[in-house]
């Protein structure tokens, strides 16, 4: 074990936070938000893999694989929706999608 678990966790946490920051900050573009979410999920996978390595079992890696599948499904659905909404409103700025409030 060359990299200690704590380092992995710190990196993952930072990644997670950065991803979240991206999602929160880049509200003008849905695509960027999706990328932010990807980063967050990558941080999660990193944690799983790190955990797997730490304990010497494959469970975490399995989880990561599943997460990948999940992510791709999510992104495909999100993109489909973005296309649909772009057609309706000619924009990908999430702040413009505020017809419901209160």
């Amino acid at each position: 074990m060359s990299v200690p678990l704590s380092h992995i966790l710190i990196v993952a946490s930072l990644m997670f936070a950065m991803g979240l920051g991206c999602v929160v900050a880049w509200r003008a573009n849905v695509i960027m938000m999706l990328i932010g979410i990807e980063i967050m999920l990558n941080a999660v996978m990193l944690t799983f893999v790190g955990g797997s390595a730490h304990w010497g079992i494959a469970d975490g890696q399995l989880f990561s694989l599943m997460l990948m599948a999940l992510t791709s499904a999510e992104v495909s659905l999100a993109l489909a929706m973005v296309v649909y909404l772009h057609r309706r409103k000619q924009t990908v700025n999430t702040d413009r999608f505020d017809s419901m409030k209160g």
């Binding site: 678990l5 966790l9 993952a12 997670f16 967050m40 999920l41 941080a43 999660v44 996978m45 944690t47 799983f48 790190g50 955990g51 730490h54 469970d59 975490g60 989880f63 997460l67």
Partner: peptide
Amino acid sequence: TAFGFALIFT
């Protein structure tokens, strides 16, 4: 949620 699971797993 996943991050939570990941941390608990870890």
